[in-house]
């Protein structure tokens, strides 16, 4: 029987190794696992990307529809992010409506994209107050081996970069398709990096085993100018000290720049 429970002696070993600055798979404390990004894997979606972060695997599909804008922002398109912890991805995922973990994941990814204005939503307005484009980002977790937030945020960004919209004209308040496509109006590239605190060390890109021994986690999402657009502490019954937070922001500046180069290039 598969189970996501980690053997206790392994837990002990992970903690001891990290205390001495090492990790079970030989990575440095702030190293990411190998990242693979494949874009355009779902032809029926306007945009898609599959990201492998070590053994963690996430598929994001972007669909573009039309709808009414929110009343308080009549000139902006609508962005929605949803995440599914698909039962095939882990023995700990169960079928049913999204639980707190899935909702948090979706909302952290959403906040990064929204607060950085990654999509220029004003360009998605067809008719103020009446008709706008709606961008649906669906995050599908296919295999869970830790650090779902970073993998999902990367996949979402890659899928947005990959997305294309059909050209159109507006005739009498309705959209008429024209031949050809244009890319989505992307105006920023938010990158999320998630720290796990184990003992009194901060590590990046924790795998599932490391997540099981971590005290707490902290996600920092940065824009291309190095400003922060979203932060989320989570992951259980631990805490951070003030100094650890400063340290994390410093490391995040470097790492997000590095990861951004990788995504935007691929």
């Amino acid at each position: 029987m598969t189970s996501s429970i980690v053997v206790n002696i392994k837990k002990k070993r992970i903690t001891e190794l990290i205390a001495s600055g090492k990790r079970t798979d030989g990575r440095g404390l702030t190293d990411y696992r190998e990242i693979q990004i494949e874009s355009g894997v779902i032809e029926r979606a306007e945009g898609s990307a599959r990201v492998r972060l070590g053994k963690t695997e996430v598929l994001v599909g972007v669909k573009i529809g039309t709808g009414k804008p929110f009343a308080d922002v009549p000139d902006k398109g609508v962005l929605t992010v949803n995440a599914e912890l698909v039962p095939l991805a882990s023995p700990s995922f169960e079928p049913g409506p999204p639980g707190a973990n899935a909702v948090e994941l979706a909302r952290v990814v959403d906040r990064g994209i929204r607060e950085s204005n990654a999509i220029d939503l004003e360009k998605l307005c067809v008719e103020s107050g009446k008709l706008v484009f709606v961008v649906f980002i669906d995050v599908y977790i296919l295999n869970h081996d830790g650090n779902l937030i970073d993998a999902s945020a990367l996949a979402a960004l890659a899928a947005l970069i990959n997305a294309k919209m059909f050209k159109y004209t507006v005739e009498e308040g309705t959209i008429v398709k024209k031949p050809g496509y244009t890319p989505l109006p992307i105006s920023n590239y938010p990158i999320a990096v998630t720290f796990a605190k184990i003992g009194n060390k901060l590590i990046l890109d924790a795998d599932l085993d490391e997540e099981q021994v971590m005290d707490a986690r902290l996600t920092i999402t940065m824009k291309k100018d190095g400003n922060i657009c979203a932060v989320q502490k989570g992951g259980g019954s631990g805490y951070f000290t003030r100094e650890e937070i400063s340290e994390a922001t410093k490391i995040a500046l470097e790492k997000t720049a590095e990861l951004r180069k990788f995504v935007v290039k691929s």
Partner: peptide, 9 residues
């Protein structure tokens, strides 16, 4: 600790 919006480090 959470944050949303736009702030420099």
């Amino acid at each position: 600790l959470q944050m949303d919006g736009n702030l420099s480090v």
